[in-house]
Design a protein around this nucleic acid. Sequence first.
DNA 1: TTAGTTACAGATTTCAAGTTTTGTAATTAG
DNA 2: CTAATTACAAAACTTGAAATCTGTAACTAA
Lengths: 199, 199
Amino acid sequence: MTTEPATPQDEARTRILDAAEALLRRHGPDKVAVTDVARALKMSHANVYRFFENKAALFDALVRRWLGRLEGPLSKIAAEDGPAPERLKRWALTLHRQKREKVSGEPEMFAAFDKAAEHAGGAVRAHLEALERQLSAIIADGRAQGVWPAPTPTAAMDVFAAISSFSHPGIVQANGAADRSAELERVVKLIDSGLRAGG
Amino acid sequence: MTTEPATPQDEARTRILDAAEALLRRHGPDKVAVTDVARALKMSHANVYRFFENKAALFDALVRRWLGRLEGPLSKIAAEDGPAPERLKRWALTLHRQKREKVSGEPEMFAAFDKAAEHAGGAVRAHLEALERQLSAIIADGRAQGVWPAPTPTAAMDVFAAISSFSHPGIVQANGAADRSAELERVVKLIDSGLRAGG
DNA sequence: TTAGTTACAGATTTCAAGTTTTGTAATTAG
DNA sequence: CTAATTACAAAACTTGAAATCTGTAACTAA
């Protein structure tokens, strides 16, 4: 989890991403050009292309970094060793809260994230895979602890599908980032019952 | 379930909706003006406004009619009197299939539907309420049949939330209308287990 | 070899104009 | 009183020229 840039390449990439993120937050998305980023760093835009293949790759990297920060608290919960059912509930609620906060608190970054998602950007795929890995870990712990006797091989995927309407950007946004924690808690309870009963 | 227009008012409304739907299917959405609809019917556009408050109301009514047709097979399943768990599964799978078919088979209508949803159109709200009523009926049957002993008052809402990622337009579309029946079947099984265990 | 540059063609975006469309009002016909 | 019309202002959309942006190539500096 080192955020430190290692090679000079990485350092330059980080500086470019920092500048791009600052611009993105000031002016919204769609209004940040590669030339703007270059200008902010007092370099020619052609030089930016030495560090990122193209504009999409630059913003994909930006979204990847942003989503990585969002994943932090979640991976912590996944790595704990308390009772799995409580962790599953807390993990789901935290994910819901994170997404809501991003939608209402960082709308520019969120819009960029949405856009990257549309363009089949790797960042979003990587994010979803990371989340599913965390969920798999919690479920594996639940089996080890004996609370969930026989989760199927697809259990993590299935649970993720069942709670995804509480974290999917489009749906969260369509609901005006409303707090649906109470409903999510009930859905998790239902799933937990199902897992205890053995799928 | 009479589709027959009753009053002359309704007849005019139906003729207008028919014309609007035909135009919508030929040319996509965004390209159908109230003036076009009026021209197709050889009336002035001002006359159309005698039957629909405004353009949004016209398209909302169109979407409402379209969604009503989509709800048909589902309400039939909800009204059957076989075993509730099997009906829940079939209902969920049918909803998923319906949405996928609409996305890939009637993209213009679907786009109009999506647009209506964004504009907080009543049609979509009515659709969601109708679906939830059907789900409530199936769950009430399950309790009556003794398979699901103690569903909570919010059970239908919770189940709907858990399977909504398989029917939500945005998500279905983002997945390229892919068939996720197998996954949905697993999610329903999980929910069914949860309901049997008493939620 | 890596960081950086200038110069350029093609794609995309902007912006002001003209045009269409929306929604209303006043009016006519039965 | 309902079905329909014409006429109109304001909002939304189209269009095409000008400006900007993207991505590449050929080059310089350390």
